[in-house]
Structure formats: C-alpha cells, structure tokens
Design a protein around this nucleic acid. Sequence first.
DNA 1: TATGCCATTTTGTGATCACAAAATAGGAAC
DNA 2: GTTCCTATTTTGTGATCACAAAATGGCATA
Lengths: 254, 254
Amino acid sequence: MPVKASEIIASVHTRITALPVRRSISASETTSDNESTSSRGAARDQVDTSIRSGLLTGQFIPGKAVTIRGLAADIGVSPMPVREVLQRLAAENALEVKPNGRVQIPDMTPARFFEIYKARFLLEPELAELALPHLSRKDAKELKQIDDEIDEKINSGDAEAYLRLNHAFHFHIYRASGSKVLLPLVDSLWLQFAPFMRTVYGRVGTANLVDQHKAAIRAIERNDVAELRAAITADISDGMGILEPTILEKSNSG
Amino acid sequence: MPVKASEIIASVHTRITALPVRRSISASETTSDNESTSSRGAARDQVDTSIRSGLLTGQFIPGKAVTIRGLAADIGVSPMPVREVLQRLAAENALEVKPNGRVQIPDMTPARFFEIYKARFLLEPELAELALPHLSRKDAKELKQIDDEIDEKINSGDAEAYLRLNHAFHFHIYRASGSKVLLPLVDSLWLQFAPFMRTVYGRVGTANLVDQHKAAIRAIERNDVAELRAAITADISDGMGILEPTILEKSNSG
DNA sequence: TATGCCATTTTGTGATCACAAAATAGGAAC
DNA sequence: GTTCCTATTTTGTGATCACAAAATGGCATA
C-alpha cells in the first residue's frame, strides 16, 4: 500500500456525499499544495485520500449505498480511478460489495463489533510496543498537542474533528513502528468501525468521552513498554465500551 | 511457469478486437470459495481466483514484476478486470505497487517475516477458538482426509500440492468460524508469506516437514479449546521455524 | 570492450463507449 | 387504495483508445 496516501488527511476533502456535478476538472487550479499534480496515479491517490478520510470522519452512513459515478462526479474525475479505489477499500473490508455489484458501507453487527474489538485488543498493543523505540520526546510533544486539541473538540462537541484527531493520535504512534504488516491490518480495522463510531457519537454526543491518551504520553516519555501497552489497551476498552450499548440495543430492535 | 505464455495468446488477443469475452480457463482451479459465477463480475472473479491460487501455490516469484496486459492475455480477458484485482491484492499486501506503477510480489525481509509470524500467533488461535463450536465430527473426518493427502504429498515431494492442501486444512477450520473480520486478516497474512514459502520449499524440499494437524484434529474431536489453540500455535511455530533460517541467511548475504 | 545516448517498445493510467442487469417510476387493472 | 406490470433511468462491468512515463534495445563513441 502506498503510504503517502494515509499521511495527508482531510485536506482536499470537504464533503463527499454532496450535490451532483458542481465541480469541473480543476486539477490544475488547486495546485497550491498538491504534491503530485501530474504524477503517476495522481487521480487515484486523490480519490483514495478523499474516500478514506471520508470514512474515518464519518461522512458515510452505514447501510447507505455509494455509486461509482456519483463519487466520480463529486470528486471531479472519471469513474475509472473510483472503480479501482472502491475495489481496494472493499478488499480492506471498509466497503462491502453486494452480489449485484452495488457498494455500500457495511452494517455493524454484534459479531462484527466484538471481532473488531478482539482484533484491536490483540494487535494495537503489539504495534505500540514496536513503535516505542522509535518514539522521541518530540513525538511525545506532538502527541500532547494533538491530545489537547482532542479535549477541545470534545468540549465543543465536534464529533467529526474528534474522530479525525483520535485517529491521528493513535496512528502517529503506530506509524512510528515502521510496520509493514501489523499497521495495514490495524488500518483496516479502523476503517471498519469508524463509520459506526460516527453514527453513535452523532447520537449520544461527545460529552462523556474519556481516553487514556495522557497515560500513553506519559508511558512514551518514560519509555515504559508495559505502561504503554496498558494505556492502549485501556483506551481501546474505553472507546469501544461507549459503542457497545448501541450495538447491543440495535441487535435487539433489529 | 510464472507468466510467460503471453506470446501465443497475445497475438490472438490483439486480433479479436470486436469479439465478446473469451471464457478459456487456463489457470488452476484449486480454490473452493467460488459459489456464484453468474454473469455479473464473472471475469473479475475468474481473474481473482486465478491469481489468488497462483499466489498461494507459489506460481509467482517474490521480486518478480507482473504486468497487467500479460496477466490479462494469460487468463484471456481484457486488462480491465485485471487492474481491479491487482488493486485488491495490493490492498491486502499480497502485491506491492511500486512508485512507478509496476506491480510485483513483495520481497521477504526479516522484519516483515517476524511481523507476519507475530500476527499469525495472535490471530489464528483466536480464529480457531471461534470456529471450534461450529466444527462437527464430519469436519474432523474431512480434515483427517486432507491431512492424509498432505502426508502423501510430503513423501512424494510435491511442494505445490502441499502448499495448497496445507492452506485448505487451516482454512477449513478458520472458515467454519463464520468470521467477517479476523478471517480476512488471516487471509491477507497467508497471501503474504505463501510465495516466500514456495521458494524455500523448492530449495530445501518437503522431506523434513512436520505439522500439528493430527493434534488439531484430536482437539476438534474432543471439543477441547485449549488443545486446539495449542495445536495451532505449535503448527505455526513449526511451519515458520522452517522458513526462519532462510530469511536470516538471506539478510546476511543481501 | 565498456559506456553513454537515443529511438523503439512496453506499460500503467485515465477517459469514454457499449451493453446488460438492476433499480426506479409510472400507469393500468382490479 | 392496492398491486402488478412495463417503460425508463441508473448503474456496474468489460473493452478499447489515447497519452505519457518508464523500460528496453541498439548504436555510436571513447
């Protein structure tokens, strides 16, 4: 997977599920900070980052179908790069290809939820441990900065910004591992539960959100492996614990 | 033969510019998860199973580049479905997209190897535990049948058949879990180390292969979770232990 | 013989077209 | 008003085309 895509998040993308073709092919107009305007695979990268950040910040609603032509018109490219990106995301289980070819955001089920929970529990502490030797005091400072912003967004109730920053916090740690195996697996997991998270936070709000970010930062500063693993584990437990009642009540009613 | 028969088909292919899809199946049909070969997405499914089974049985050599047009000509379809399938497999880290767009089988490195090892250790016992309640005595019987075939192939030195059957054994268990999250993750892991396995077995032979399949079957018959987890863990350890010297010596010489 | 340069070929990418299947809308029959 | 059927539109899929970047091969020169 080209890692260049995952670094820049939510810069080009404003709103995916927007109106029909109100954009022209303005590839040369928005070249202010575009790193690869006429490079190889430029359109595909653009589509990839757009849809990915859209998924992570909850722009897509679970159960809602997405169309190739619709996305292509929104982003302003031909359907071709969209087709390839959708295939990629389907391979990561971030999207579901129904037997008739339609693509939609998968619905969350209790079984799926607890599997994701379990996989995160197993993989993310391991990834944090791999990353710890590569994390400097400068990283700790940047993480603290992100965490402060998170607290801010929690207070202001900005669920979308919270999701984006929470993802940035965790993957700032994980990406430092230089992992080429575990990191993509965890990436796939986040893409799977993020849309569901958004619908929950949109309903219950962000007020009673708690996290173990400060403990994680402290562990990084002290270079304490056990403490970092414990913080990540507890953070997963906290985050998923908020979602759990929703998925359970949903399984009763539906 | 990796991907070389393109010359014969290529001449034919370039000639039939206006004809409908050729449905010549020239690749191995060893997998067994193809249940809906309706008209919708037929070519893509065909390409997907072809390349996937090719990867799992070691038809592709690590470091070797594959071309879209070459694969398309081999399988007998247009480049279009091949492009989508390659994107899918790249998303699963079974293939690597280089910055110039070329697609190749990733090279194995010590870091990658130990990460795959670790991920298998964490995920596969969990998957087996999830599967155990769904495994009947009929499954145990089928697994024993596969295992007998494996012993046969080990004695005859058929590395390709061994790889195919070993995959069939493990995924007969895992697939019973009905998992939608852990199973794709493990699927991705197998696609990543299988090509490397093939090159190793092609060099050191299959004579000194050992596995814990009989212990796993016994555990399934007894419905013993701990024993099944132990068997799977030991089997991973055995299998990867054979590969380990090769990856280490490779890191010294190259 | 070795090496740098240029023409040719190959390859990936994005766009467009054609077609069939599916979804949707609209109207007729009860 | 409800239901069923048909006509229209929408959508995914496969194929082909055009173009630029990259790889390849051959040739000239030192």
